[in-house]
Design a protein around this nucleic acid. Sequence first.
DNA 1: GCGAATTTGTTTGATCCCCAAACAATCTAC
DNA 2: GTAGATTGTTTGGGGATCAAACAAATTCGC
Lengths: 158, 158
Amino acid sequence: MARPLNRPPAKSLDRGLLPSLLGYALRRTQSAVFADFAATFARAEEALTPGEFGLLVLVERNAGLSQMTLARALGIDRSTLVPILNRLQTRGLLVRHPSPTDGRTHALGLTPAGEKALTRFAKLVKAHEKRISEGLSAAETAKLIELLEKVRHSARPL
Amino acid sequence: MARPLNRPPAKSLDRGLLPSLLGYALRRTQSAVFADFAATFARAEEALTPGEFGLLVLVERNAGLSQMTLARALGIDRSTLVPILNRLQTRGLLVRHPSPTDGRTHALGLTPAGEKALTRFAKLVKAHEKRISEGLSAAETAKLIELLEKVRHSARPL
DNA sequence: GCGAATTTGTTTGATCCCCAAACAATCTAC
DNA sequence: GTAGATTGTTTGGGGATCAAACAAATTCGC
């Protein structure tokens, strides 16, 4: 008999100073947005993380770039990048060509299937973006991005 | 002549549509803010993550709460919470008391050392918050938090 | 030119976060 | 009291992240 509601009304906890913290708002919002991103792709029976999407866009727009260049652009260690590229390569979306000019590096590029997939992915990302910003006007969304960029530059990389 | 420039001038990559995406700005800013948080604590020779700080505040302000209640407030699975509590308990900041009313649950609470540590942590968080928002006016910071909250509520939990 | 220093990609090892499923202990509902 | 739900824990499986070590290749310094 599905009616157990003898449970306390789940009153929300006292969060103290947390709601006044920018970092806290950022973390919670990021988490919710990530969940929305995942749900958007899951419903379309596609599998992709925000990080993978960003990576694919970077490779598409900068074909031939090396793993180090890509890792720096993504702000991650080169060793972190390896298994991510392996996965995308196994999925047939991306290839590591030998560089004609530097024997140490790989020239990264999308496969034709990768290009096609990225087109699909971009549509899903658009829908996702539309949903998460539905409570905001276009001006507010622009303002939000601008403020986030300011914060990003104030946060010290070190 | 300082001319090591045999290397491409590290020109920044073409990011395509990424800079127009709210999710992308959110993710990058969150990452930079996290790094600043970590650096702030590292310089003070303290060790804490934003998540742990949030957890400690919640426990302090809601002493006696159960692990399930805490997990729900944090938006994580109860099994994810276990090793986190173990670590904080090992550090002597937090204790799991037996609940007087419900033999299944633990009544979480801070130790005296945990209370003291949280006071130190809160100061560091304040300094961190001040730094990341230094490029913004107080009004802009408030607006930013407000916009983030709106986005958070638009992002569908499912 | 040629040896030394640097760069690149990879592997390995260490933490850490996350979830799902299963389990025993305990509580709740009927 | 007994069946069903809840709680905390353990286990197993993904990943993300960095650091250190290595071989191969390139560049630097002279």
